[in-house]
Design a protein around this nucleic acid. Structure first.
Lengths: 355, 355
DNA sequence: CTGAAAGCGCTTACAG
DNA sequence: CTGAAAGCGCTTACAG
C-alpha cells in the first residue's frame, strides 16, 4: 500500500543542490535575514526542484516555537462550536499558523488530553471554547494545564466559558476570556415570557454541571424570583444539548405540570425537540404553549414557527478569540472581554391564552 | 502578560531526578522495552513531580513518526462536515493520536496549504472530506501533494469526494476513498418526484464546479433524461450551500418558470431557504410546490413540513474513514469504499396538483 | 535490564 | 552577505 516510503528532501539536500550552506537555505526560507538576490533565487529553484517542505518538527524544536493554534470544542457536529471555530479560523486564515480543532465529545478527560497534547506540541496558542464541566477537580486540573501552557509561552484564550481561577482563587494570569453573557440572556428570555403573562414556565436544561447550563438556568431563576415565581409551577429538567432531550424532557415536564404555558430550552436544538414533542401531542406553538431557545443558530429562524431565542454573536466572538490568540488584539483590562446576549423575539412565543 | 516563559522540564531533567539515563526514561515513557519495575516507578515519580510532558516535536523528529491525523473540511460550521469529522474522531478518540481539523472555507489554496502543513508535520494520516474544486489544475496540485504525502509514509483517505487520478490517469496508489453515491442519490430523488407526476422541476445547485454539486446535478439529469424531461421546463441555478442561495435562486427559478411544481436543492440547507422563499410568496409546500434536499442533516426531520431528502450516513462514513486512516481496516480492493445514498421521503414532497 | 553516543532536521549566535 | 558549529529534546541501534 505505502510503497517504499521515500524520505522527503531535507534542508541539507537543498543546500547541496544550490551550492550553499544549510544556514543560507534556512535564511532564505525564513526571509528574516539579508541574502544576496541571486543566491536566494538559486535556493528557491532548488526548493522547487526537490519539492522541499520544511520539517515542522525540526523547525519547532530548533526555533522553540510552533505555528499551531489549538481550538478545543465539545462537539464539532454542533453548529454552536462550528460557528465559533470558523470565526477563529477567519483570523488565522491569512497567516502562517495552522489552526487545528480538537473535539472532546464533552468528555472532561479528553479536554485534558488535548491540553497535554497541545502542550507537548508547544502550541503557539490555544482557545478553549464552550462550557466546561463545573466540578472543582476538573477545573483545578484545567487550571494546572493552562498555567503550564502559559508559563511555557503559549497564549491561552477562553471563549464561552467563565474565567479560570488560579491557585490563589484570583483569575489566572495571562489568560483572556471572551465571556458570553449566558446568565443575562437567560434572564431576558424568561422576563420576556413573564411579560407575556406566563406564570407556569418549564425549563429544559442542557447537561447538568456544565457552566453554560448552570448560568442559563441561573438567569432564568433570576427572572422568576424577581416576579415571585418558581417552585413547582416552574419545573426544571435537564439532559443534554440534543433534540432527543427536548422531546423526552417535555414529556416529563408535562407529566409534572400539564398546565405549563411556556417552555424554555437550554439551546435551540433542544427547543426544536420541545416543539416536535408538543406538536406530536396536538399542542400548538405558541397558541397553546410558548417555546424559546438559546444561541440563535442559523436554523432557528427557519423553524416553524420561527424560534424566539437569545442571540450570541458566535462568529464575531470567535474572531475576537482568534485575534486575542494571535496577539493581534490586546486583552482588555482584567482579561475579560464581555459578549452580550441579545433577546430575539420571533413567532414561537406569544401572550398567554386568555390575556 | 506572559510572565517569564518558564522552560518546561526535559527528559534529561527527569533522568537526573530519577538517577537514571535519558535512554531509560525514554523507554519507560514509551513502554516499548523491558525496564526494571522499581526503576520505572522512580522515573514515573520524577515525571509527576516535574509535571513533565514529552516534547512532541523532538519525539517526532527523532522517531520520524507523529501522532497527528489531519482532517480537512470545507466548512466547520456546516453540520455535514461536523458529522463526518465527529465520526472520524470517534475512531481516533481512544488512541494516542491527535485528530486535528483544518478548515479551508472552500478555498482551494487553503486546501493545498493544509496539505503542505500536514506534510511538514509528517502527519500519520490525512483525511480529505467533502467535495473539492473540480478543475484540472487544482486536482493535479492536490494529486501532487497527496503523492508526496503517501510516499513519505502518510496514509491518505478521501471521504466524500471522488477518487484522485494519478499522473498516469489511473487511481492514485495507496489512497483509499470513501465514496458517496451523490449521483445515484440525486437520481433517486428526482425519479421520486417524477413518479409523483412532476414534470417542471427546478434545481438549486451548490457551488458550481465542485465535485459534489456536479455529481448531484448529474444524477438529477439522469432521471430527467430517462423520462424525456429537461430543457427549459427544468431550469438549474447554482449558488453556494447556504440558505440565502435557496432564497435567491428560488426567486430566479420562478422568474424563469413561474409554473414549477417542484424544486430540488443541492443540500438540506439550501432546501430550507427554498421553503422560506416559497412561504414568503404565499406558496405552500408541498401543496403548491414540492421541495427536496440532500444529506438528511439532523434539522431536516424538524423542518415544517419535514424534508424529503437523501440520507448519507455521514457519521458512519466518517468512522470508516477513521479506521482506514488508522490502518484498523483494510482498504477494499480497488481502494474504493462505496457509501450508498438512501432516499428518505417525508412531508415536503407530494403528488403534483390535479393528479 | 541499563547506559553512552550518534543522529533526526532544523535555527541561530558567532565569526568573518 | 555567508559559513562552521553548537544545540534544540528526543529515540534507538549498539554494547554491555
Amino acid at each position: 500500500m505505502t510503497q517504499h516510503p521515500d524520505p522527503p528532501a531535507t534542508l541539507a539536500d537543498v543546500a547541496r543542490r544550490a551550492g550553499v550552506s544549510p544556514a543560507t537555505v534556512s535564511r532564505v526560507l525564513n526571509g528574516n535575514y539579508p541574502v544576496a538576490l541571486d543566491t536566494a533565487a538559486r535556493v528557491q529553484r532548488a526548493v522547487t526542484e526537490l519539492s522541499y517542505v520544511v520539517n515542522g518538527n525540526a523547525r519547532a524544536l530548533a526555533a522553540a516555537t510552533s505555528d499551531l493554534v489549538g481550538i478545543i470544542v465539545n462537539d464539532v457536529a454542533d453548529p454552536f462550536f462550528g460557528l465559533i471555530a470558523s470565526g477563529i479560523q477567519d483570523e488565522t486564515g491569512g497567516t502562517d499558523v495552522l489552526a487545528i480543532i480538537g473535539n472532546t465529545a464533552g468528555a472532561p478527560d479528553r479536554e485534558l488530553r488535548y491540553l497535554t497534547l497541545l502542550r507537548r506540541q508547544r502550541a503557539r496558542a490555544v482557545v478553549l471554547t464552550g462550557g466546561t464541566v463545573d466540578s472543582p477537580d476538573h477545573l483545578r486540573a484545567v487550571a494546572t494545564q493552562v498555567s503550564a501552557l502559559v508559563s511555557a509561552g503559549t497564549t491561552v484564550v477562553l471563549c464561552g466559558r467563565p474565567p479560570l481561577a488560579g491557585a490563589d482563587h484570583g483569575p489566572l494570569a495571562g489568560v483572556s476570556t471572551v465571556d458570553f453573557d449566558n446568565r443575562g440572556g437567560g434572564q431576558a428570555l424568561t422576563a420576556h415570557l413573564i411579560a407575556l403573562g406566563h406564570r407556569r414556565i418549564g425549563y429544559v436544561a442542557g447537561p447538568a454541571n456544565r457552566t453554560t447550563t448552570k448560568l442559563r438556568v441561573l438567569g432564568h431563576q433570576d427572572a422568576l424570583k424577581r416576579h415571585g415565581l418558581g417552585g413547582t409551577d416552574c419545573p426544571v429538567v435537564s439532559g443534554d444539548f440534543s433534540r432527543g432531550t427536548g422531546e423526552s424532557a417535555t414529556a416529563e415536564l408535562l407529566r409534572q405540570r400539564p398546565d405549563l404555558t411556556a417552555i424554555v430550552a437550554g439551546n435551540d436544538t433542544i427547543a426544536l425537540g420541545v416543539c416536535a414533542y408538543l406538536r406530536s401531542q396536538g399542542r400548538t406553538v405558541p397558541a397553546d404553549v410558548s417555546v424559546a431557545g438559546f444561541d440563535d443558530l442559523p436554523f432557528s429562524a427557519d423553524a416553524v414557527p420561527a424560534l424566539t431565542t437569545v442571540r450570541l454573536p458566535l462568529i464575531e466572538a470567535g474572531r475576537t478569540a482568534g485575534r486575542l490568540a494571535l496577539g493581534r488584539q490586546l486583552p482588555p483590562p482584567g482579561g475579560i472581554f464581555p459578549v452580550p446576549a441579545e433577546l430575539v423575539v420571533r413567532a414561537s412565543t406569544a401572550p398567554v391564552r386568555g390575556i
